[in-house]
Simulated scan of single mutants.
Amino acid sequence: MRTHIRIGTRSSALALWQAEFVAAELKKLYPDCSIELVHHSTKGDRILEKPLAAIGGKGLFTEELEQAMYKKDIDLAVHSLKDMPTDLPEGLTLGAITKRATASDVLVSPKYKTLDNLPQGAKVGTSSLRRQAQLLHQRPDLDIQMLRGNVQTRLRKLEEENFDAIVLAEAGLTRLGLEEYITQVFTVDEMIPAVGQGALAIECRSDDQEMLDMLKPLNDEATRWCTMGERSFLRQLEGGCQVPMGVHGTIHKGQLTIKALISSLDGKNCYEGEMTGPCQTAEIIGKNLAKALYEEGGKHIIEDLIQRGILK
Rank of each mutant, 00 (worst) to 15 (best):
V22F: 01
E283Q: 12
N219A: 12
W17Q: 03
M214D: 01
G297D: 01
M84L: 15
K253Q: 15
T98R: 12
L81T: 08
E160M: 06
I55P: 09
R148N: 14
P31V: 12
V106T: 13
D45Y: 07
E203H: 03
D87N: 11
G121Y: 13
E274P: 02
H79C: 07
E170S: 06
K58E: 10
E296D: 02
S109H: 04
F163W: 13
A15M: 15
T153R: 11
Q138K: 15
L168W: 05
E272S: 14
M146N: 14
I74V: 01
R175N: 06
P119S: 00
I301M: 04
S11N: 01
L88W: 07
H40T: 13
L92I: 11
T114G: 02
L212H: 09
S104G: 02
P217G: 03
E210S: 12
V38N: 00
T223N: 00
L14F: 15
E203R: 05
I310S: 00
E190N: 04
T187W: 02
M84T: 13
W17V: 03
H4V: 08
I97T: 09
G277E: 00
E159Q: 15
E190Q: 14
I35R: 07
L142G: 05
K253I: 07
R6F: 02
H252W: 11
I97V: 14
I192G: 00
K27V: 04
S128G: 08
A15F: 14
T62R: 06
V38A: 00
H79L: 06
V22A: 00
H248W: 15
A260C: 02
I306E: 14
L81M: 12
L65V: 11
G59F: 13
P31D: 06
G286N: 04
E64D: 10
S41C: 10
L176I: 02
T257K: 14
V106M: 09
P140G: 00
Q280P: 01
L289C: 09
A54Y: 04
K123C: 08
I192F: 01
K268Q: 13
L256R: 09
E210P: 04
G57K: 03
I35Y: 04
P217R: 10
G59W: 13
Q307H: 05
R2D: 01
Q184T: 06
C204Y: 05
L234R: 11
C279I: 11
R10W: 11
L60K: 13
M211G: 00
T126E: 05
D83V: 13
D75G: 08
Y271I: 00
K291H: 08
D207A: 08
A165Y: 06
Q138E: 09
L293Q: 05
E180V: 12
L135A: 01
G277K: 06
G198S: 03
